[in-house]
């Protein structure tokens, strides 16, 4: 068993290394110097307090969307709908931020709560349809993503502005950023949302590993028939899992709304926060600590990528290739396992 546990940690690390290796090969193939390329990437992600602040800022919503998807995965559900739940959460948080004038100690939690409720509502539709009618959650969540995209765009034009493409700024009392913190990190867009994301990471870990509810959810995800035999309600657990998953993704949207931007604008396409959350959850092996680490890796990579073209001439999309390859190697971990086992045998 210990062997297995070690492998579970070793495989993501090896996958990350292999992903970078493929990136280096691609750079070599197109006549770039991979050392220069990765130096630029590192510089972009951690080169100064400003870059570190940006990397953390980019990590915050990824932690939450990653947690959302990991939570659903553990319950045997595939929530592709995190993308749409991010949209409605973002909208709800900004709406609360604009419409009310409250002391910050109430305003911020209220905005986050509104986002969680909006995200949960959005996830409730696929959840209830799956539980009562057996409708595949993947299709419904894909549809809900598009509905979220168009609905929030419509509401921004009509409710949050007069036909404009951007909402008003939220009241200062709802803003998660403080000038002091931003100044400390070289005037980057960092905000206190990192505390929010850590709180929810701890919540997910505790809920899944230490409570009866979490145990039931995992049991349903692992084997719905066995769970049903031992008297658990599969239907209730499916709905509950989707509600919490959607709520988490909604809060991820709130981090953009009342943290990074302070407003919402109409989107022509998806933010990819939800889809990247899938990658985060997978690399993090669907555990809360793993998700936090994976989100930080991807957040830093995405910020670092922006420095690659100016510093080394390598197109920023190289990072997308690296991330995709990391996910691919995680998926094909059987291959890595085989290789490790073979090495072990030769040692003996």
């Amino acid at each position: 068993m210990m062997e297995n546990k070690k492998l579970n940690i070793l495989i993501p690390i090896l996958s990350v290394l292999l992903g970078f290796l493929v990136g280096a090969i691609v750079m070599l193939a197109f006549g770039y110097n991979p050392i220069e390329g990765y130096a630029a990437l590192f510089q972009g992600a951690f080169g100064s307090m400003y870059n570190i602040g940006e990397s953390i800022r980019r990590t915050i919503p990824l932690v939450l969307s990653g947690l959302a998807i990991a939570f659903a995965f553990r319950s045997g559900l595939f929530n592709i709908g995190a993308e749409g739940q991010v949209f409605v959460g973002w909208f709800a948080a900004v709406w609360v931020g604009v419409a009310f004038d409250l002391p910050a100690i109430i305003h911020i939690p209220l905005a986050i709560l509104a986002a969680a409720v909006a995200g949960a509502l959005w996830a409730f539709v696929p959840g209830i349809l799956k539980a009562t009618r057996g409708v595949h959650e993947v299709v419904v969540t894909i549809m809900m993503n598009y509905i979220a995209l168009h609905t929030t765009n419509y509401l921004i034009r009509t409710l949050l502005s007069d036909g404009g493409s951007q909402s008003e700024r939220i009241a200062n009392s709802a803003w998660l950023a403080t000038p002091g913190l931003q100044e400390m990190f070289g005037y980057s867009q960092i905000h206190w949302g990192f505390i929010v994301s850590i709180i929810f990471a701890v919540f997910v870990w505790f809920f899944l590993e230490k409570t009866t509810y979490g145990y039931e959810l995992r049991a349903v995800g692992f084997n719905p028939h066995a769970a049903k035999y031992s008297g658990m309600s599969v239907k209730r657990n499916i709905v509950l899992a989707m509600l919490i998953s959607g709520g988490l993704a909604g809060i991820g949207g709130a981090m953009e709304g009342i943290g990074t931007f302070g407003y919402m604008y109409t989107h022509g396409a998806f933010t990819n926060l939800g889809f990247d959350g899938i990658a985060v959850a997978l690399l993090g092996a669907n555990t809360a600590p793993g998700v936090v680490l994976a989100a930080f890796l991807f957040g830093a990579l995405k910020v670092g990528a922006l420095s690659m073209p100016p510093l080394s001439g390598v197109p920023a999309e190289l990072v997308e290739i690296v991330i995709a390859m990391i996910i691919f190697f995680v998926a094909a971990s059987y291959m890595i396992r085989l290789v490790i086992m073979r090495f072990k045998k030769e040692e003996n």
Partner: peptide, 11 residues
């Protein structure tokens, strides 16, 4: 693996 394919293709 499908998710990886999607990301890799765009990248």
């Amino acid at each position: 693996s499908g998710v990886a394919i999607n990301m890799l293709a765009v990248g």
